[in-house]
Design a binder for these strands. Structure first.
Ligand SMILES: [Mn+2]
Ligand SMILES: [Mn+2]
Ligand SMILES: [Mn+2]
Ligand SMILES: [Mn+2]
Lengths: 164, 164
DNA sequence: ACAGAAATGTAGCCTTGGCTTCATTTAGGG
DNA sequence: CCCTAAATGAAGCCAAGGCTACATTTCTGT
């Protein structure tokens, strides 16, 4: 059963599991809406980490190193911002680094980067496939990608395969 | 010409406008990446306001009023969180309210709500059209919608019209 | 080798968007 | 009517993610 974000079951748990008492339909709709928003909030929280890991993986692959300055420049932020984000990556076990040296990904970080990169490509491809100009597809995908669930991703894959 | 977020033209303005000096291709790619990320950040900043205005419009239409408690319940947040967000809506000229009374939208707010609602519907429709299960489409659209540009939206519209 | 430039670190500020806790006001049932 | 429950407000805490300013370290060209 789905928990509310505060850990309780919320005021509607009974009504959801039991056969609907015919009324209170509105309450159920509200709960579903809350569910969607919670999902989106959760995705938003991971978005930054995803962008950083993907970018660091790209830099490592292309240049053999991922320096704070390069990360910051690619993301369009100042270097202290990048430094702080990398500190969070390290705290979450996604990256490692030593002072004045570049940033590297842990196995977990590299795995996330791979997933994120594949998803990013797929989103761009799908957008282009439905007629979005390439430039706009690249732009929008940078934000959209973080909110595409596994289910939706699978649907995108099927769509692209069928179309080809 | 596109400005960097700090108001300057960034270190690459010359290279972008002039015929490319054949090298430094990487720098231009980096600048484009930064552009994408800045765009996504900007969209993320508006996402909350968009969700609130859309929801408030829905509540007003369905129940004739939009109370803080209902807003909070639908969004899955506590009431002080909703109160603070509404304060921001008011500050930005999107909503009005008086103590212990419901929340209403300004003309500007109502207009935003209409745009956001139309975009939301279109995103859901497109996802379903490419084969995403309805439930997942509803879920993911709540996050995706905020990152879909006008260009992409127009492409979605064409796609749906052609398909029908 | 070393001086200046570039990169990195550190500190501290701001806003946003969550939360809890407690005070106050409004609304309704007996 | 009034008394309690519900709704709202207000204060204050926290983390994330931006920024500037300044200190320190590393790199590089002469
Ligand atoms: Mn992204
Ligand atoms: Mn990406
Ligand atoms: Mn939304
Ligand atoms: Mn929406």
């Amino acid at each position: 059963m789905k928990l509310c974000r505060n850990g309780t079951f919320g005021p509607l748990a009974r009504k959801i599991s039991q056969p609907p008492p015919e009324e209170d339909k509105a309450d159920i709709l509200d709960a579903e809406a809350a569910d969607r928003f919670n999902q989106a909030r959760s995705a938003r929280a991971s978005a930054l980490l995803e962008d950083y890991t993907e970018l660091i993986a790209d830099l490592l692959q292309e240049h053999g190193e991922a320096r704070i300055t390069d990360i910051a420049r690619c993301l369009g932020v100042t270097h202290p911002t990048a430094t702080k984000a990398v500190a969070r990556l390290k705290r979450e076990g996604l990256a490692v680094s030593r002072p004045y040296r570049g940033v590297f990904l842990t196995d977990e970080g590299a795995e996330m980067a791979e997933r994120v990169r594949a998803r990013h490509r797929l989103v761009v491809e799908l957008l282009i496939a439905v007629g979005v100009p390439e430039e706009a597809a690249e732009m929008d995908a940078e934000g959209i990608e973080h909110y595409v669930s596994e289910t939706t991703l699978a649907a995108f894959e099927r769509y692209l395969k069928d179309k080809r």
